[in-house]
Amino acid sequence: MSTRLQRLTADRLALAGGAILLTLGLAAIAAPLLEQALDVSGIDADLLGRFEPPGGAHLLGQDEAGRDVLARLLRGGRISLAIGLLGAIGCTVIGTLVGTLAAYAKGPVDAVLMRITDFVMSLPSLPLLIILAALDLTKLGFSPDTLRSPMAGFWRIVAIVVVLGWTGIARLSRAATLAVLERDYVTAAQAQGATQLRILTIHVLPNAIAPVIVAATLAMGRIVLAEAALSFLGVGIQPPATSWGSMLNNAQDLLVTDPMLAVWPGALILATVIAINLLGDGLRAALDPRAGTGA
């Protein structure tokens, strides 16, 4: 592991990606503190300060309701990054479970699981994301009160991106597990009479996890983009909550008045996704030096 860590820390681009991501994440977490320190607010309207240009305490100016743009960007970042992180974790858990199970079970279970994976993969993702975001969950037995709670919208988006996003990781994890199961040390463990559970946890998972970690990192980038797209279309995060995507939705109508409102959220999305991709590529190179850099 230490050589892998050395390879990763020697990769300046990957380090830069990690640093950008960490900075954005910490800034987003610290948003309320920064608001206090600068005495600005990303939530409360200040109708006398509408479209105020950058200056003074408002480092990036104020938006159409007089909210501080920088503070609002950080507030939006909390939601965008949290959805990216939680979505990636969800996709990884489900994908790894499905992939490992398929590789282990072989035969009909494998075939069924992989056909389901292919099926979900071949659906048009964005239209389906929109439908899932528009579903009336009371028809599935959720109570209207649960759905109206402030966090429901957030968890709903996380659930949607996981439902459609686990497939790539399932395939990768299945392939990696199959490859590891062929190796001599697994045969040796079996010959020594190790239990299936021990083989799975000690031998298979640690050795099959490298491509999954890489894919999970890259999945976070895709999920940040998907959330932004949904919120941009107005079916994702709903006001009063805000994300970078919903800020762009807002800015679309104000493009003539204040184009910078459209520039900042998108630039942060771009920075986040580039940082994630750099980190993912670095991890790929560090964990599996033989693998190519293909998509």
Partner: peptide, 11 residues
């Protein structure tokens, strides 16, 4: 690969 298409569209 990292660019949000709709943002590019807005710009």
């Amino acid at each position: 690969i990292s660019l949000p298409g709709f943002w590019l569209g807005l710009l």
